[in-house]
């Protein structure tokens, strides 16, 4: 638990240091990243339906973003 947290802090630090340097692209190099299927939440409807199924059938849910409400359990 604590170790995971430290990992997160370390990651945030790394991102701060590396910021402009090696990571990332120039603004005009986003052709591939701009594709719909490269969006992190691409296929949002599928993700929502999956979340609902797994929320009802498993003990853990969420993590990706805020889930909608409701039980629809069993």
């Amino acid at each position: 638990m604590k170790r995971k947290f430290l990992a997160f802090v370390a990651l945030a630090g790394v991102l701060q240091l590396s910021g402009c340097a090696s990571l990332g692209v120039q603004p005009w190099e986003r052709d591939l990243l701009a594709k719909d299927e490269m969006a992190l939440g691409a296929e949002g409807v599928d993700l929502g339906l999956d979340d609902h199924i797994y929320f009802s059938k498993e003990a853990t849910s969420g993590g990706r973003s805020f889930a909608g409400g409701g039980c629809g359990c069993n």
Partner: peptide, 24 residues
Amino acid sequence: TDLILGVTQVINRRMLMQFNYGLS
């Protein structure tokens, strides 16, 4: 009550990464 803190980073022209911490 849910709290989410996230970092999204473009790695290069082909790669994108996201890290979220969530407290519920």
